[in-house]
Simulated scan of single mutants.
Amino acid sequence: MIRLLIADDHPIVRDGLSGMFAAEPEFEVVGQAGDGAEAIRLAEALRPDVILMDLQMPGMNGLDAISALAERGVRSRVLVLTTYDTDGYVVPAIEAGATGYLLKDAPRDELLRAVRSAAEGRPVLSPSVADTLMNHVRAPRAPELLLSPRELEVLQLVASGNTNREAARHLFISEATVKTHLLNVYAKLDVSDRAAAVAEAYNRGLLKPS
């Protein structure tokens, strides 16, 4: 039995997915969440095998929820199910820890197979998403694409003098998530602290003086 948690801000999508999986004897839908924060609470309480995670949700979005789940040591596999297949969404989701990435127009059988694979820890990508990743790897990267949009937001707030707590409040995310974004920034810029990250970001043109 594969235990599922469905996170999507549209009730009709959640109900449709729940009905589809309920019709299959090998799946059990143990919970539904309408945003990232609720998905984290339910994942910690229910420990599902797989979380179907939308990315664009009010409050805490799916990307921040994936990062927070990894920080908290929740071992559930996250399978992104969204309508967005650009590298601005795909790459950060995979980097944050998603096991797979599917689009909402995926056929029913493909979605069932993907959840089975995710439950076993095997990566799953829809064809268009795989193409996006390949193009991302092959293409020269502009400086502003080195960091994800959220990482840039966090770094800009830090550069403006905000503490982690203040940045978290501005972005409606947890302080722990801010710390994770900063650690990712340090790794990508090959620095070890906030001041060096800000200086390197200005050197590379990632941040512009106000």
Rank of each mutant, 00 (worst) to 15 (best):
I6F: 04
E26W: 09
V90G: 06
D8P: 09
K208R: 15
V91N: 09
Y89C: 09
T163E: 05
A176Y: 00
Y202A: 07
R41D: 15
E71W: 02
V129E: 10
T132V: 07
A33Y: 05
I94N: 07
D8Q: 07
L79K: 07
A199E: 15
D87V: 06
A43Y: 06
D9T: 03
R194P: 02
H10F: 12
G36D: 09
P48F: 08
Y84I: 09
L147Q: 00
L102C: 05
V50Q: 10
E175W: 01
S126Q: 11
F21A: 13
P149M: 00
R122P: 03
V185L: 01
H181N: 04
A118N: 07
D85E: 11
R72N: 08
M60T: 04
A23D: 14
V154T: 07
V90A: 07
S160V: 00
T163A: 07
V185F: 02
M20C: 09
V191I: 03
A68Q: 11
A195Y: 12
E28S: 14
L79P: 08
S18M: 14
A130P: 02
A176G: 11
V124S: 06
Y84P: 02
E26P: 05
L79D: 12
S210D: 14
A106C: 12
E175F: 01
E166P: 03
L4K: 12
V178N: 00
P209V: 14
E110Q: 15
T83C: 12
K104V: 10
A7F: 05
G97L: 04
R122T: 14
V129M: 05
L146C: 00
L171Y: 01
E28R: 14
V185A: 02
S76Y: 04
H136S: 14
S148P: 00
L206W: 02
T177S: 12
L111S: 04
V78L: 05
T82M: 06
V198C: 06
V74E: 15
Y186W: 13
G205T: 00
L112C: 01
K104Q: 11
G73T: 09
P149A: 05
A39W: 04
G31V: 06
D35A: 04
G161Y: 09
I12Y: 12
L189T: 01
R141T: 14
A7I: 08
I2L: 12
L189P: 02
L55G: 09
L52M: 13
A96C: 06
I66S: 03
K104G: 07
T82Q: 11
Q56I: 13
L112T: 04
E110I: 07
T83Y: 01
A22D: 15
P123S: 06
L155F: 03
A114R: 03
Y101I: 02
I6S: 09
R108D: 14
D105F: 01
L52R: 05
N135M: 14
V115E: 10
P209N: 12
V137D: 09
E153M: 10
